[in-house]
């Protein structure tokens, strides 16, 4: 399973044409204590870099952008009652949605782990 990142700090882990999507540990740390995650609706069709959902902390709110285009086939309902999971495990248990990837060639628009680490250093 490979992981890719966007400049807006979302990640996607790809396996068998399905992408699990979330926000990076860096993003979760920057937001501080997360108080709310607005998940996409099941079955929603999202476009790469289009709005997938949103996330709020006490002092900030930001949109979550879809790293890949496709149809939302699963959402992490646990986050609705326990948004702090994103702080505790942003790149694992804090996943937000599964997207049935429409076009895997879009992955070339994203950063690899190594590229993302360099990108964070450049900020």
């Amino acid at each position: 399973m490979s992981i890719y990142f966007t400049k807006e700090h979302e990640w996607v882990k790809v396996k068998d044409g399905i992408g699990a999507v979330g926000i990076s540990e860096h993003a979760a740390h920057e937001l501080g204590d997360i108080t709310f995650v607005e998940l996409p609706k099941m079955g929603a069709v999202v476009k790469q870099f289009g709005v997938l959902g949103s996330i709020e902390s006490v002092k900030a709110a930001s949109d979550i952008f879809a790293p890949v285009s496709g149809k939302v086939i699963k959402v992490n309902e646990a986050l609705e009652v326990a948004p702090e999971i994103v702080n505790e495990s942003a790149e694992d248990a804090g996943w937000m949605a599964w997207v049935e990837i429409a076009d895997e060639s879009e992955l070339k628009n994203l950063m690899t782990q190594e590229q993302y680490d360099d990108y964070l250093k450049s900020l």
Binding site: T35, F36, E56, S57, V58, K59, A60, A61
Partner: peptide, 10 residues
């Protein structure tokens, strides 16, 4: 509370 809904943040 819930200030993230409001104009000074959003």
């Amino acid at each position: 509370t819930l200030q993230a809904r409001e104009q000074h943040i959003k």
